[in-house]
């Protein structure tokens, strides 16, 4: 017999929303902030974004150059491993496809690296094919530092710790190697629909 919490009724969601909510998640209206340390503040004139590692030629953009790249408007639901989900968040940013366009690589993985030393790992196929962006606007405004500004990775189909704040580049790697939270108990892949929160979750 499965476990029942005596006296717990809970709050049901409307059917229209229920199908959009992965297991164990609940909806928030605000935008909670989570980070492991102080918010880094890199001046824009010292900001750049690079593609390094197993590539035929490293690529680098200054902030001004980055803003010249073709940008997209993105509307997606996001899911944080701490259980909150937020529906229909709107972003503007550059598709990772655009950044990698024409690049020669035999890598299968990327490690996103960030100001403040944060890293997170992802399969290359999860940041290509229209699935990931470097976002610098949220709801029509410049992305606030506490939410990862000036720019953050946006990979909405995975738990939101994969959407690294203060991102400064992607390192292309032949093997998967754990990033910050992935070294500290959190799942290597992080699919919210399969509830891959922690080490050992299937």
């Amino acid at each position: 017999m499965s476990f029942i919490s005596r006296g717990f009724k809970g709050r049901r969601r409307t059917a229209s929303v229920a199908g959009r909510l992965p297991p164990g998640q609940y909806i928030v209206d605000g935008f909670p902030v989570l980070s492991a340390g102080p918010t880094p503040r890199t001046p824009l004139d010292r900001w750049d974004f690079s593609i390094v590692g197993q590539v035929d030629q490293a690529r680098r953009w200054t902030w001004a150059e980055f803003l010249q790249l073709p940008a997209e408007e993105i509307t997606r639901d996001i899911h944080c491993v701490t259980k909150w989900s937020k529906l229909d968040t709107t972003w503007k940013g550059v598709s990772v496809d655009t950044l990698l366009d024409g690049l020669e690589t035999s890598a299968d993985y990327v490690l996103a690296f960030c100001d403040g030393g944060y890293t997170t790992n992802l399969p290359l196929e999860d940041v290509t094919g229209g699935k990931a962006w470097i976002a610098y606007e949220y709801e029509g405004q410049s992305l606030e530092p506490e939410h990862g500004g000036p720019a953050r990775l946006l990979v909405p189909h995975l738990y939101f710790w994969k959407s690294a704040k203060w991102v400064r580049g992607l390192e292309l790697l032949p093997e998967d190697q754990p990033g910050f939270w992935e070294s500290l108990g959190y799942h290597m892949y992080g699919d919210p629909w399969r509830e891959q929160r922690y080490w050992g979750d299937e």
Partner: peptide
């Protein structure tokens, strides 16, 4: 937490 109809909620 699990309700009688199987509905669940999680928090940390």
């Amino acid at each position: 937490l699990t309700a009688e109809d199987g509905y669940q909620a999680q928090r940390s």
